[in-house]
């Protein structure tokens, strides 16, 4: 689903400039999904959304603005999914003898189709006997590439470094290199100077995708996750533990949010935090324990 991919990118963008020690990923994650649903036209009321997750609506909304600021108000995420679908449709058109080669490529639709039949098979497979087998090969590659886009492309930093078309083409390169080569050779003339450059970038991108962590962590990784989680609990910023309470206070006293300048300035935030900790140190028994319900 598109909004899920968007939510993952929101999280990644948010933590470019924020620390998980300040804002717990668990809380930000819920809000990221909710905001991504709105941004991708999959709106559900906050009530029904919170009910599904069994949390309060306030816990979802409390960090919405924080997240929005962390994203520098850029809601648009360019995904590689449409590009992959388009490329797949083109490949199918080539098998039908209906696909037009790219500008400057001197291949008739018939020649293109024959070239597909002639393509070297994927490793471990024998050469295709007829065009039906090529169609199946395209479908298989499409399915595998899509899976990679839904996992590795999201879990690595690939979205930050590569364009949507580079992303989907490099997944094609991973799952069926001869097919990817055929595709690019049909879209770009042999003499094209950019082709070697494109391949260099695609290879770098593919390498990054291959390095992706698994979507389902194994036993060892789970253990490691638990350890990190425990450690995180100990080193969290105590002032940002209860986002719901902070949000409430901000709504009551808008000036806490730092005037109407361009975002909350660091200086103002520091001052605020100083005042807060001074107030708390006056309290004989230390700061109030955070309400962890949210």
């Amino acid at each position: 689903m598109r909004y899920q991919a968007t939510a993952v990118q929101y999280l990644k963008r948010f933590y470019l400039t924020n620390s998980p020690m300040t804002y717990h990923p668990k809380e930000i994650m819920q809000t990221a999904v909710y905001l991504a649903m709105k941004a991708e036209d999959t709106f559900h009321s906050v009530r029904s959304f919170a009910e599904k997750l069994d949390v309060t609506t306030e816990s979802i909304l409390a960090s919405e603005f924080l997240l929005t600021q962390g994203l520098r108000f850029t809601f648009d995420v360019r995904h590689p999914f449409h590009g992959l679908e388009g490329g797949f449709m083109e490949l199918l058109a080539f098998t039908n003898g209906k696909g037009e080669a790219g500008p400057g490529v001197k291949k008739s639709p018939k020649e293109t189709r024959e070239e597909m039949l002639d393509m070297s098979p994927p490793p471990g497979k024998s050469k295709a006997k007829d065009i039906k087998e090529i169609v199946i090969r395209c479908q298989t590659a499409h399915g595998k590439a899509k899976e990679l886009l839904k996992t590795s492309a999201l879990l690595t930093d690939a979205y930050f470094l590569y364009s949507p078309s580079q992303l989907w083409l490099s997944t094609l390169l991973i799952v069926d290199e001869p097919l990817a080569r055929f595709y690019l050779d049909t879209k770009l003339p042999l003499t094209s100077e950019v082709k070697p450059k494109i391949f260099t970038v695609l290879r770098q991108c593919a390498e990054m995708l291959r390095s992706s962590p698994a979507t389902q962590p194994d036993k060892e990784e789970k253990k490691e996750l638990k350890r990190i989680q425990k450690k995180l609990e100990q080193c969290r910023n105590p002032q940002k533990l209860d986002l719901v309470a902070i949000n409430r206070a901000q709504k009551r006293d808008p000036d806490m949010n730092g005037g109407d300048g361009l975002g909350e300035t660091v200086a103002k935030r520091r001052k605020l935090e100083r005042e807060q900790s001074m107030k708390e140190s006056e309290d004989l028994f230390g700061p109030v324990l955070a309400d962890k319900k949210g």
Binding site: K38, S45, F65, F75
Partner: peptide, 18 residues
């Protein structure tokens, strides 16, 4: 509207920024 940022605001910002 009790659902946080409005769809209007999100859409307007999302598209005009691009």
């Amino acid at each position: 509207w009790r659902d946080g940022l409005t769809m209007d605001a999100i859409r307007e910002v999302k598209y005009l920024q691009e």
